[in-house]
Nucleic acid binder design. Structure first.
Lengths: 233, 233
DNA sequence: ATAAAAATATGCTGTTAAGCATCTACGGTT
DNA sequence: AACCGTAGATGCTTAACAGCATATTTTTAT
């Protein structure tokens, strides 16, 4: 989108800061294969089935990564926050994407061209090891998530999602409001339930004064109880 | 178990074959930090919460890796087959184990001491990249599995598990019998259902001549239909 | 060989959450 | 401001599956 001025150099520096132990020559190489683009809320960044073009980084905004399940019911598998990578799994596994990425708000994303990055990785063991570690951590999350989504009851799943969103995006200055505004449908798709049940369960938690609702603004009033609901409910 | 003669050298060569691009010096180093042990059916190899001692490799036998869920209901997150690694996620993520590994039959496992391996990885980018790729692939599996376990119906989940077991352990010489003999409970824990429902659903598939049951022996009579049930049921 | 324990089979009941349908509130467009 | 479309709220009904009880078979230990 040419009408938006993106400070590519700032974005580049921010993205590079995510890499550790980058040699000057490697940094130059990345600079030459680095692109930025402005993405509108609701726009798709990549789709399930597509070939990964490179390493994608979220510089500004929020992005959900989801898989379409049986009967058009989506499951959100990841929420990206700035500054951080996403959509790298498929690239490293040498596979097509197995999920779709969509901007939740107007965002700026950067891409490092695939071959450029792979070349660097093949000679920089430290960097490769660093990424390996991230993948191992994420695999742990994913395994935990499988247990959560299959075994916890609706209230527990929703409570966990709210805590997850708080931990991922933080709180507003009031120290209570979760810094992300999701539709009830997205909240449902994150927590493996129908939209109706997300609405119902949110109302329930609100009636019990565990949370407070104001449209899509969600305030956590009683984090301790929410945590208990997540762990035992 | 000293009364069992394990051919450590053969095991060592088999394990090394899993690594690609191993330099002679690195191989020597691994040999010096390589141990083997005999594990009885039902024995625990590592437990949820423990510190990973090193890279574990299954040389002979079968191993399940599971997480204890809410209310003592386990979820099997991985099935290891020889010759292959398991329990490496926690080590690479620098975390304690988040699951328990138990031998499904008498097995031989080998361990490469942790620091030894990490040292090699930090200088061998090719090898590190290879492992990175494996982790990325496994993360894809895990994400797919989350969708399956949460969205498919019982029949679909069980059918998928049977196909998964066939693909993991292969078939007996008759070309039909799955080469692993799990309890109904393990089958249930693999498919996210109660033992009762695993038994019921297996009986159902047997009545429909999709599979044949003889104790723990499971024959796939109609792989095409089983596949359809997995994908649509 | 026999007792005890574990695994398997099967039926019945209850709960959870999905599937709908209906109604209301809100947001963006003309 | 009036319109439309989407999102949110809420109630009712039903399907899927868990939970439990009991019976039977198989395995393990002594």
């Amino acid at each position: 989108m040419a009408h938006h001025n993106i400070d590519v150099q700032s974005a580049f520096e921010a993205v590079c800061a995510l890499f550790h132990n980058l040699k000057p020559r490697e940094k130059e190489k990345i600079r030459a294969n680095f692109t930025c683009s402005y993405i509108r809320r609701g726009e798709i960044i990549f789709r399930d089935g597509e070939v990964p073009s490179g390493l994608v980084c979220l510089y500004k905004g929020k992005v959900k990564i989801f898989k379409e399940g049986v009967g058009g019911r989506d499951q959100i598998v990841r929420m990206a926050r700035p500054v951080g990578f996403f959509g790298y799994r498929a690239m490293f596994a040498d596979e097509n994407h197995i999920a779709t990425a969509e901007a939740l708000e107007d965002s700026i994303i950067c891409t490092i061209e695939r071959d450029c990055l792979l070349e660097i990785l093949k000679t920089n063991a430290n960097l490769t090891f660093h990424i390996l570690k991230s993948l191992a951590t994420e695999l742990g999350f994913s395994n935990n998530r499988t247990i959560t989504l299959t075994q916890k009851h609706i209230r527990g799943r929703l409570a966990e999602s709210l805590l997850f969103l708080r931990d991922t995006y933080g709180l507003e200055d009031d120290g209570q409001t979760i810094k992300v505004y999701l539709s009830r449908e997205d909240l449902a798709n994150l927590s493996n339930m129908t939209t109706s049940n997300a609405i119902r369960t949110l109302s329930g938690l609100c009636n019990e004064s565990v949370i407070d609702l104001d449209g899509r603004r969600i305030k956590i009033l009683d984090a301790y109880r929410l945590d208990r609901i997540s762990n035992l409910g």
